[in-house]
Design a protein around this nucleic acid. Structure first.
Lengths: 286, 286
DNA sequence: AACTCGCCAATGGAAGGACCAATCTATCTG
DNA sequence: CAGATAGATTGGTCCTTCCATTGGCGAGTT
């Protein structure tokens, strides 16, 4: 029931952590020591760390410090904290969501130029295309085609609704349609990235999309763009299914060309003196 | 004392934050509220948040909760905390290092297959090559060439030292040489990425390198690989300087081919039953 | 015997208080 | 005027207390 360590449930960490913990930044140190123990595999995923009160005496410190350290590790995605008896801090497998959140936060605060995002995503898509065609299973390709078809159906539904709201009217139907479309688009992209057979592409795709969603959301509310985007997705999927990388990449490039146009239009109308390119080289020279 | 808000120095946040903060997860809520205020621009970078004791009364909560929230924001890279009078939590520009740390943490815990990293970096380099040639200034290209030359010099120095340590001897000279080489290699990559004129490529490059450094370090200790890698860097830089993308990309691909061979060799010798490909699709299906 | 209910212990969550250490300001002293 | 000193502000740490949640265990019931 209680694993390889004694009833006190402290065990392993005792042998690892140097107890003193520097002055001035005890919390910092403790978080790092626990993190090190987690990463070294001293405590394995699923296992429980000693309770806060045990850690408190283990590190000869106050409970507040322990709590601060655990909160940090929790927000890093390293541990999961459960209340109640048999509760405590459990080592967790880091999910990519923590990475993509950090990235999205970064993108947001730095107000990255949409054109940079578009360019990056285009290059990413083009690379993935070759890999997906080379490595993706027939089932995956089939699934990709099917998903684009459901995307088309939803889009047509939305378009039909939009007929009553001719243009920029913020009808709720249009909004909801756009959101589900964006969601489908997101899933398509992730499936697409998955077909590359290299998880890093999936992670990057997921992270990029976190910083992209607001843009996508706005764009999908434009009926004309929606139609083009959906058509392009279908064409791309079919080309991938037919193992025709050039054709697929051609469609992808076309899609991003349209996207660039839309973004330029939006900026021309929305912005009036507000510059969108904020970052230059400042932070990255050192 | 000064600034746009009264002597209490709370000001802006008062109007924004809904004071109650749900029960059970007050800390969570407070961190999110402050984060929202920071991201909304309610408090701008460089400005100071109210002191912990002021926030404590502002949110009608204990100081511990405030501290936990601030620690989380600090580790997210959103704020910087200074002690003493006129100290406090200052809104900070998020640095890419926080993203790359999260990414490195993730890569480490998931023991990503080096081949995946290599593949991703190769594709990244190939894309950047075109952009760098198209957009990089002549000065940057010149600088790239020069840096590769200093890299070559350092490498030759190291090789000369290695002559006395014929093979796998862990001489300190070899170690230090390898470390400086890795550092130079890292700088070269960042300059290279910078030339693409799209910060996202720099960020991704920086993040990737965090998860890559251990591998690079090991590889650069091999004299044969070192020579090939350095030569290739020089050739690549020259090709970029000559605005010859095909040639440059050819050198890059060759470099990664060699890298793959080295990694395969290392795994063949090091590992004895330990599987290196851990991640499959598990976490990414949903 | 099996099932249910309720009490109890362990644990995280929160609040508040006290003191220390660092840091800046203003004043005092030479 | 310069340096030293006292004070105020603020984060860092420790401590105590209480609450809410959760799981386990045992008494009691069916």
């Amino acid at each position: 029931m209680d694993g390889p360590f004694a009833g006190t449930s402290s065990g392993k960490l005792v042998d690892v952590c140097s107890v003193p913990a520097k002055a001035g930044r005890a919390g910092e140190d403790i978080a790092l020591q626990i993190q090190a123990a987690v990463l070294d595999g001293t405590v394995r995923p699923g296992e429980r760390l000693p309770s806060e009160r045990e850690l408190q005496v283990l590190f000869k410190t106050g409970r507040g410090v322990i709590r601060e350290a655990l909160q940090v590790l929790k927000h890093k995605g390293l541990i999961e904290i459960r209340k109640g008896a048999k509760g405590g801090a459990f080592v967790k497998n880091i999910e990519v969501v923590s990475v993509s959140e950090a990235f999205a936060l970064f993108l947001r605060q730095n107000q990255t130029d949409p054109n940079n995002l578009i360019e990056f995503r285009e290059s990413l898509d083009l690379v993935i295309t070759d890999l997906a065609i080379a490595r993706g299973s027939a089932e995956q390709k089939q699934q990709l085609v099917e998903r684009t078809e459901t995307l088309a159906k939803v889009a047509n539904c939305s378009v039909a609704h939009d007929a009553s709201h001719p243009e920029g009217s913020p009808g709720s139907a249009s909004m909801e349609g756009a959101e589900t479309l964006v969601e489908l688009d997101r899933e398509l992209n992730l499936l697409f990235a998955k077909m590359a057979g290299n998880p890093i592409f999936e992670w990057i795709m997921q992270a990029i999309q976190s910083g992209f969603s607001s843009l996508d959301n706005a764009l999908y509310e434009d009926a004309a763009y929606r139609r083009i985007a959906v058509d392009n997705w279908q064409n791309t999927a079919r080309a991938i299914f037919q193992n025709d990388p050039l054709k697929a990449k051609s469609f992808i490039s076309y899609h991003y060309m349209v996207l660039r146009q839309k973004v330029d239009q939006a900026h021309a109308t929305n912005d009036s003196g507000v510059k969108t390119t904020k970052i230059q080289g400042e932070n990255w020279s050192a």
